[in-house]
Simulated scan of single mutants.
Amino acid sequence: MRQLAESRQTADLRVAEQAAAKSVTSATVELDDEQVLQEVGIYRYHHPLEDATAYLPRLKDVEARSAALVRDGHAIEKSNLFTFDNSLAKGRKMSDDLAKLMLRAYNAEAENSIRTLKLGNVHTAKKRLEASRAAIAKLGSMMAMHISDAYHGLRIEEIELTADWLMKKQEEKEEQREERARLREEARVERELKEQRAQLDKERTLLMQTIGQLQASGTPDADLELRLAAIDQAIVDNDYRAANIRAGYVYVISNRGAFGEGVVKIGLTRRLEPADRVHELGGASVPFRFDIHTIYFSEDAVTLEMELHRHFATRALNQANSRKEFFFATPAEVRDVLASKVGNLLEFKETADATEFFQSVGRWPSSHPVSS
C-alpha cells in the first residue's frame, strides 16, 4: 500500500509538471512589440538613475533579495493543510515538491523575459511574467499556491531595472558618438581657421611689401589698399570665429526623395564652408543630396539652433530622441520663425530643386506607389 501511494505521488507530480509547463506556456501573453511600442509611446524610466553603471548595484541588490526569499521559503506561498493519502506530512511533501516545480517554471519565464529584453519591449516582458504567475496560481489553487507578491515584485523590478540599464547604455553610446563627432567637427574647424589665418598672414605680408614698394616709388595703388583692408577684416573675423565657439552657421535643408515633402532638417555647423557639411550629410546614407534653403551665420548659432528646435519640438520626426534634427515643417514655416528671431533674411529658398529625385522617380518600378 505504501509503494502504491508513493507511486501515485510520483505520477501526480509528473502530471503536475507537464501541466505547469503547458499552462505557463499557453498563458504567456504573446504581444506584438511594434504594436506595444506604438501604444506605450515614449520610453519612461521606471527607476531613473544617473548613469548605466548605477543600475548594476541595484540589480545585484534585487538578485540578492530574490535569492533570500527563495532560501527562506517565501518566494511561493502554499497551504500547509493539504493532505495526500490521508497524510498531512505527505501532503506537505507534495506541496513542497510542486512549489519547487512551479517556482522553477516561473523563474524560467522570468529569466527568458530578461534574456530576450530589447529596448522598448519591457511592457511585453512584464505582461508575459504576469501571465506566468497567473497560470501558476490557477494550477495551485487547490493548495492555495501562488508566487508571493514580494517575490513577483522583485522579479518585475529586475525586468524594469534591466530595461532601464539597456536604455541608459544606448543613450550613453549615442551621446559618446555625438560627442566624438562634435570634437571631430571642432578639430576640423580649428584646422581650417589656422590654415586660413596662415594664408591671410602670408597674403597680407606680400601686400604690405608691394604697397611699401609702390609708396616708395611714389605710385600708390588704391585697389591694393582696399584689398589690404579687406584682408585685415578677414583676419579679425577669423580670430573672432576661433575665439567664439558659439559662432557658426544655422542651416535649413530638405531631402524630398528621402523623407518626402514637408520635412526639413535644422542643423548647425562651424565650418568655414558650411555647404561642405551639407554635402557630407547627403552622402551614402541617403539616396539623394540635400537641398539648401538657407545657411545663416549667427554670432550665437548655438542658441539660435536651440530656439528653432524648441519651436518645432512637437513636430519632430523622432519623438524618442530629441537630439535628432528632422521636423515636419515646410521651409516657409521655418523661414517665418527664423525671420522673427533674426530679422530680415537676405537669402532663403522656399522651393527645393530635388534634381536627383525628379531625375530618378520616372525610372522607378511601376509597382512603386510614388512612380505609379
Rank of each mutant, 00 (worst) to 15 (best):
255 N>Q: 01
227 R>D: 09
166 L>W: 08
255 N>F: 00
236 V>N: 14
228 L>A: 12
254 S>T: 04
162 T>Q: 14
187 A>F: 09
184 R>Q: 12
230 A>M: 09
236 V>Q: 15
267 G>T: 00
244 N>L: 06
224 L>M: 11
237 D>N: 15
245 I>E: 15
270 R>M: 01
223 D>N: 13
203 E>V: 01
199 Q>S: 14
241 R>K: 12
168 K>Q: 14
228 L>R: 13
252 V>C: 09
247 A>M: 10
215 Q>D: 15
197 R>F: 06
185 E>A: 14
206 L>W: 03
184 R>L: 10
194 K>R: 12
222 A>S: 14
241 R>M: 10
258 A>V: 00
254 S>Y: 03
223 D>L: 07
225 E>H: 10
259 F>H: 07
204 R>L: 13
177 R>I: 00
227 R>M: 08
229 A>C: 03
170 Q>C: 11
257 G>E: 04
209 Q>W: 00
230 A>P: 04
273 E>T: 10
216 A>M: 08
262 G>C: 03
154 L>Q: 11
182 R>Q: 10
214 L>F: 02
201 D>Y: 01
217 S>C: 08
175 E>Q: 12
170 Q>W: 07
200 L>C: 03
225 E>G: 15
240 Y>R: 12
152 H>V: 02
265 K>H: 08
218 G>T: 08
227 R>L: 10
159 I>G: 13
200 L>R: 02
167 M>V: 07
182 R>H: 07
190 E>A: 14
215 Q>E: 15
216 A>D: 11
172 E>K: 08
175 E>V: 06
230 A>L: 07
165 W>A: 13
196 Q>W: 05
183 L>A: 14
243 A>Q: 14
241 R>G: 13
261 E>L: 01
168 K>W: 03
152 H>W: 01
238 N>K: 09
264 V>Q: 01
254 S>G: 04
257 G>V: 03
232 D>I: 00
210 T>V: 10
186 E>V: 03
205 T>G: 15
167 M>E: 14
224 L>N: 04
261 E>P: 01
216 A>Q: 12
272 L>F: 02
190 E>K: 11
262 G>V: 01
176 Q>N: 15
260 G>D: 05
196 Q>P: 02
171 E>Y: 06
251 Y>L: 04
274 P>E: 04
237 D>P: 09
189 V>W: 05
165 W>G: 02
235 I>V: 12
186 E>W: 07
224 L>S: 05
154 L>P: 12
152 H>I: 00
196 Q>M: 11
274 P>N: 04
258 A>S: 15
163 A>L: 05
